[in-house]
Design a protein around this nucleic acid. Structure first.
Length: 559
RNA sequence: GCGGGUGUAACUCAGUUGGUAGAGUGACAGCUUCCCAAGCUGUAUGUCGAGGGUUCGAAUCCCUUCACCCGCUCCA
């Protein structure tokens, strides 16, 4: 359980988001929608800044002629923006169609949900041992018959588990397993007819008949292309942006003079019918991804994998995430997607999680040549062979296009391997907000300590970069302040002007939305042309010439 | 999807045994104010989450539903 302190902190962040216009519940006046969120005037600026920081680091900054000293070689990355509704075959070949359309059964008693084709079981004949009756209750009658005993384990473990469960359920001693009267081999629940479900004993219960009928849980959102809604024109909203890069691999290669190694990057919306949207914007049904597919020589791919994994970690740190809140977690072999040689998650210690727990911000995956080969040859199976249908033909055909690459330096032709850093834009934005939220104590004008809420956002992420105040509303101060304000606007720097209320209150308002600097025009400004520049984090003020403030702030924002 | 909790102004909350809603903060306007939530004056805001029912009368009782929080479950 998340500690009360962490939960309270998260609640304050959510309240601040709403109060100051960072994040609203979508369609709130109609009661809202689970898993959908809107960004308000400040939130949209923050999120734009997150996108921009990512794009700068991933696309703009890289050039083969200007290699990063840490990188195995120089490289370029180009951006694209692809359609949300892609050809339905893309999702069949990528595996999302099969994977996202699972039949599931629920257990009414154990409250569990299971994938139909993951539940294994075996028919056995015997008499169910009744449970010990509760005090004063009638003992349940023993029931004889055929029972389908189940487990969620796989392979040899499944066989062992089924023997153990059958012994327990039918009252057979564990050293007399030969007495078990099996009358089928191990199968999945998918092979069991619906009218036999009353004899099925779920994996986490001892009572037969507690499973619901199998139901579809299609995690891809569906739509139709064209006005008629027929099965033929059914289409899907993309569950990830990555496929846009793979299907455009050849287009990019042919049109942009890139050479391997290079990357294709995209920022865009994706959609998944998550079963349990939860934790504010962390798991949403409509969300934005920042993904990059890096294509390289297969033999060099391990080096590139390490490089991107480490570089992406540094990106979060460079924008203010403290190292103790950031975790790089390499997946175990068993966790790896079937096509992946290695995967690491970059995770953040969100306050809605328990102490010591982390939530995923980004996955950096070595995907081998799975994607390009799939789109060329057809959907691949676990062993990277083309998956065949019942007719012996590919289950889902690829494009048939040659997606290999010819290296004219080495005279080699190969299918590049892919390293994929895939980040969640909304999650990252939320992490920056959580990281930035502080409450500290500052004295008011009477010397009484007051709680101050401050968002210590990195200046590049802050929605408002600078605020300009006249100390008092007379003596020409508002006019002078407006002049400076306009200079910031003209320079393309997001500034705010505020002459309302006492100066202390104005500072606090800016602290709460993370504005890094406040500039105040006072009596001295009118005499010597200097203003005070107040720092959000240190509360220190320095006097500088009004004519230099725009350049100074612009310079600080570039660093 | 299951279990528990919550839903009243922008925010935090109060609202007595059913008798058509209040406080503080905030916002806005004015006065004042030469540096960290000051003071004074004034203004605006809610179909009490939504729908239905009981009742002469519902924020309050009943049903349905939606959303959020906590715990399960799930998370390619």
């Amino acid at each position: 359980m998340a500690s009360q302190e962490r939960t309270a902190r998260m609640e304050k962040i959510v309240a601040l988001c709403k109060r100051r216009g960072f994040v609203f519940q979508d369609s709130e006046i109609y009661g809202g929608q689970n898993g959908f969120w809107d960004y308000g005037p400040l939130g949209v600026e923050l999120k734009r800044n997150v996108r921009q920081a990512w794009w700068q680091d991933m696309v703009v900054a890289n050039d083969p002629m200007l290699p990063d000293a840490e990188a195995p070689a120089g490289f370029s990355i180009v951006g694209i923006e692809t359609a949300i509704v892609m050809h339905p075959q893309v999702w069949k070949v990528s595996g999302h169609y099969d994977l996202f359309a699972d039949k599931m059964v629920d257990c009414r008693e154990a409250k569990g949900r299971y994938r139909l084709d993951h539940m294994r079981g075996r028919w056995v004949t015997g008499t169910l041992t009744p449970k010990a009756p509760a005090e004063g209750a009638e003992p349940a009658p023993a029931v004889s018959g055929d029972w389908y005993v189940t487990t969620m384990l796989d392979g040899p473990e499944a066989a062992d588990a089924l023997v153990k469960r059958a012994c327990k359920l039918l009252g057979v001693k564990s050293n007399e397993t030969h007495k078990l009267q099996w009358n089928s081999e191990i199968s999945t629940l998918a092979s069991v007819a619906l009218d036999k479900y009353s004899s099925v004993i779920g994996p986490d219960t001892t009572t037969p008949g507690t499973l619901t009928e199998p139901r579809d849980f299609n995690l891809m959102m569906e739509t139709h292309t064209g006005a008629l809604q027929t099965a033929e024109n059914k289409a899907f909203l993309r569950p990830e942006t990555a496929q846009g890069m793979f299907v455009n691999f050849k287009n990019v290669l042919d049109s942009s003079r890139v050479r391997v190694p290079f990357g294709i990057a995209q920022i865009g919306k994706s959609f998944r019918n998550e079963i349990t949207p939860r934790n504010f914007t962390f798991r949403s049904r409509e969300f934005e991804q920042m993904e990059m597919e890096f294509f390289c020589q297969p033999s060099e791919s391990p080096k590139w994998y390490s490089y991107w994994r480490d570089r992406r970690m540094k990106w979060y740190a460079s924008l203010g995430i403290k190292s103790e809140n950031l975790l790089l977690r390499e997946h175990d072999k068993s966790e790896l997607a079937h096509y992946s040689v290695g995967t690491a998650d970059i995770e953040y210690a969100f306050p809605f999680l328990d102490e010591g727990e982390y939530g995923e911000l980004e996955g950096v995956a070595h995907r081998g040549d799975f994607d390009l080969r799939s789109h060329s040859e057809g959907k691949l199976d676990k062993n990277l062979n083309v998956e065949l249908g019942p007719d012996g033909q590919p289950k889902y055909r690829g494009s048939g296009k040659d997606l290999s690459y010819f290296d004219d330096q080495t005279r080699e032709r190969f299918i590049p391997h892919v390293i994929e850093p895939a980040a969640g834009c909304d999650r990252t934005t939320l992490a920056f907000l959580c990281e930035a939220y502080y409450e500290d104590e500052a004295p008011d004008d009477k010397g009484v300590m007051q709680t101050r809420v401050v968002l210590r956002l990195h200046p590049r992420l802050a929605p408002v970069k600078v605020a300009i105040f006249p100390l008092i509303k007379k003596d020409g101060q508002p006019e002078k302040a407006l002049e400076i304000y306009k200079a910031f606007k003209d320079a393309g720097i997001n500034a705010q002007y505020d002459a309302q209320a006492a100066i202390g209150k104005r500072y606090r308002r800016m602290d709460e939305i993370g504005t890094p600097w406040c500039i105040t025009v006072d009596g001295d400004t009118m005499k010597d042309g200097t203003v005070t520049l107040r720092d959000r984090d240190t509360l220190e003020q320095v006097r500088i010439p009004a004519s230099e403030v725009v350049d100074l702030i612009a310079k600080r924002l570039r660093v």
